[in-house]
């Protein structure tokens, strides 16, 4: 018999929660646990040897630093784009708005080839940097540019709705109190959009960590210099070293999870600050 003593106001908790668990298990948890299982076939010393290999460490450094810089750049310029799209009316605004999502739609390999073509030493843009001794394609700078490209929509799309809903009365209040435009942005608007900024940053960062398609073309894939972790994993797979690939992926996954968890935690603390705390 069904137990009716505990009744929820909204019906369907059991079925929706059950569905969520099954769905998450099939799509996320089971594939990831298989990864861990595969990695556990290695002995601890083998595991350590695989992941502490000089080339692997170098690739971790390249991947994480490029992704971090790309996410930071996207945070700054994504906010700017969101600002322009929300606050100003100009001809062709809808086209620009649609343009923002393009990096999502384009196959990443296409993006990689296009970026390489223009940023290569003899490319449209690369040729101007070559005489200055700046190499864009086939360097970490190129990797970062590719990661900026693919992560662009995240910050724009998470900040835009928050900015849209931001009540003008707060800015007006600040201006009647004597704040200038810069102070209003820094002290009033920025704190309000910070949770959304963090979300956008975390998404762009996570996306950049896993990016493969666009980077392999522009990076040049030089071991120790411009080799990213996903590439290294593919290389191992091609050599039928499944356990080694799983080991690197496991470390990558753990670090990513930890970083994203920290960002979420920070965001949660930020959000908690302005949430209504009743009955205090």
């Amino acid at each position: 018999m069904r137990n009716t003593s505990k009744r929820h106001l909204l019906p369907g908790f059991g079925i929706s929660m059950g569905f969520t668990m099954v769905y998450l298990s099939l799509i996320v948890l089971i594939p990831i646990s298989v990864l861990f299982l595969k990695a556990s076939t290695l002995s601890l010393s083998d595991f350590w040897q695989t992941v502490s290999d000089e080339r692997v460490i170098a690739s971790f450094k390249v991947t994480f630093s490029s992704s971090l810089i790309a996410a930071l750049v996207n945070t700054v310029f994504g906010t700017l784009i969101a600002w322009v799209l929300v606050r100003y009316h100009f001809w062709g605004k809808r086209v620009v708005d649609a343009l923002v999502d393009l990096p999502f739609a384009l196959p990443t390999a296409v993006a990689g080839i296009a970026l390489t073509a223009i940023y290569a030493p003899n490319g449209w843009i690369g040729q101007f940097f070559e005489p200055l001794g700046i190499k864009i394609a086939f360097s970490q700078l190129g990797i970062t540019i590719a990661l900026i490209f693919i992560g662009l929509p995240f910050v724009v799309r998470s900040v835009q709705p928050v900015l849209q809903d931001f009540d003008a009365q707060y800015e007006e209040a600040a201006s009647t109190l004597g704040a200038n435009s810069f102070q209003i942005f820094m002290k009033i608007i920025l704190p309000a959009i910070t949770p959304a900024l963090l979300t956008g940053f975390a998404l762009a960062f996570a996306r950049a960590l896993g990016e493969y398609g666009s980077v392999v073309f522009i990076s040049g894939n030089m071991p120790m210099k411009t080799e990213i972790v996903p590439l290294l994993i593919i290389t191992k797979l091609e050599q039928f070293d499944y356990a080694g690939a799983a080991a690197i992926a496991t470390v990558m996954l753990l670090i990513s999870f930890l970083l994203l968890f920290l960002i979420n935690f920070w965001q949660w603390k930020q959000a908690k600050k302005h949430r209504a705390v009743k009955g205090v």
Binding site: Q169, A173, P191, K273, H274
Partner: peptide
Amino acid sequence: FVFQHYALFKH
């Protein structure tokens, strides 16, 4: 200036 809905800075 005092606003109808206070406009206190929430954060």
